[in-house]
Simulated scan of single mutants.
Amino acid sequence: MTDRENVNPLAFHLPHKEASQMNPVVLAYMGDVVFELVVRQYLISLPNQKPHHLHREATGMVSAKAQRRLLERLQPMLTEEEADVVRRGRNSKSGAPPKNADVADYRQATALECLIGYLYYQGKLERIGELLNAAIRERN
């Protein structure tokens, strides 16, 4: 089965290129959305579901600094292929970081989002869950 046949069932429109050939910034663009979805699902699974609390917690988890720390926890768990995707994402030219983000944190956050986007387009939702659940558990 090729990568294109093993697609994510949630991907209604497949990208023009295979994930391995996509621009890392484009992968990060999708990875940002998938990461935020996973964070929101995690937070809703917890007892305190007041909207203000959910928003505050989500904001803290999706910041560049928080994503950098999460990626640091994930590094030992990554396959060689995943580590290569992270390097591509970290080294990509993704524009200027937001005013409230450190450049190094922003590059690492882009790398994490690139990995999540790559895994998403590879149809590896279980792997995304495995990595993020392990990192979130370690965070607590």
Results as ranks from 00 to 15, higher is better:
Tyr29Asp: 11
Glu18Ala: 03
Ala83Phe: 01
Asn91Ala: 15
Gly89Val: 00
Leu27Lys: 10
Ser94Met: 05
Asn100Val: 09
Val38Gly: 05
Glu57Arg: 13
Met77Tyr: 08
Met22Asp: 00
Arg69Ile: 07
Leu10Pro: 01
Asn8Leu: 00
Phe12Tyr: 09
Ala66Cys: 11
Lys99Cys: 01
Arg56His: 13
His53Ile: 15
Pro24Val: 01
Ser92Leu: 04
Gln21His: 12
Asn91Arg: 12
Asn100Trp: 08
Asn8Met: 01
Arg68His: 15
Leu78Arg: 00
Gly95Thr: 12
Leu10Lys: 10
Leu71His: 13
Leu71Pro: 13
Leu46Gly: 09
Val38Thr: 08
Lys99Val: 05
Ser63Gln: 10
Arg40Glu: 10
Val26His: 07
Leu46Phe: 04
Ala19Gly: 02
Tyr42Pro: 05
Ser45Leu: 05
Met22Ser: 02
Asp32Lys: 10
Val33Asp: 12
Pro97Gln: 07
Ile44Asn: 08
Asn48Pro: 11
His13Gln: 04
Leu37Asp: 11
His52Ile: 12
Arg90Ser: 05
Val7Phe: 13
Ala96Cys: 03
Lys99Asp: 05
Asn100Pro: 03
Gln41Trp: 06
Phe35Ile: 00
Gly89Met: 01
Glu72Thr: 15
Lys99Ser: 06
Phe35His: 14
Ala11Lys: 00
Ala83Trp: 00
Lys17Met: 11
Gly89Trp: 01
Pro97Asn: 06
Gln41Gly: 11
Gly60Met: 08
Asp84Lys: 07
Val39Tyr: 03
His55Thr: 15
Pro9Asp: 06
Glu80Asp: 14
Thr79Tyr: 00
Pro97Lys: 09
Met30Gln: 12
Val85Tyr: 06
Gly95Asn: 07
Val86His: 03
Pro9Cys: 05
Ala28Leu: 04
Tyr29Lys: 14
Ala58Cys: 11
Arg88Pro: 05
Asn100Thr: 14
Leu46Gln: 15
Ala66Asp: 13
Asn91Gly: 14
Leu74Glu: 13
Met22Gln: 09
Lys99Ile: 03
Gly31Tyr: 08
Gln41Glu: 14
Glu82Arg: 00
Ala19Cys: 01
Asn8Gly: 03
Arg68Leu: 15
Arg88Trp: 01
Val26Tyr: 04
Gln75Asp: 12
Ala19Val: 00
Ala19Phe: 02
Gly60Ile: 08
Met30Trp: 06
Val38Met: 11
Arg69His: 14
Lys93Pro: 00
Glu72Cys: 07
Val7Lys: 14
Gly31Ser: 05
Arg69Val: 08
Arg56Trp: 12
Gly89Tyr: 01
Gln41Tyr: 09
Gly95Ala: 09
Ser94Trp: 08
Arg73Thr: 14
Glu72Tyr: 14
Leu71Thr: 13
Leu54Phe: 08
Pro97Cys: 03
Pro76Cys: 10
Leu46His: 07
Leu43Ala: 02
Met22Thr: 01
Glu5Cys: 06
Ala58Gly: 10
Met22Glu: 03
Gly95Pro: 01
Arg90Trp: 11
Leu71Asn: 15
Arg87Asn: 05
Val85Ala: 00
Asp84Cys: 02
Arg88Cys: 01
Met61Ile: 05
Val86Tyr: 06
Leu14Gln: 12
His55Val: 12
Gln49Thr: 14
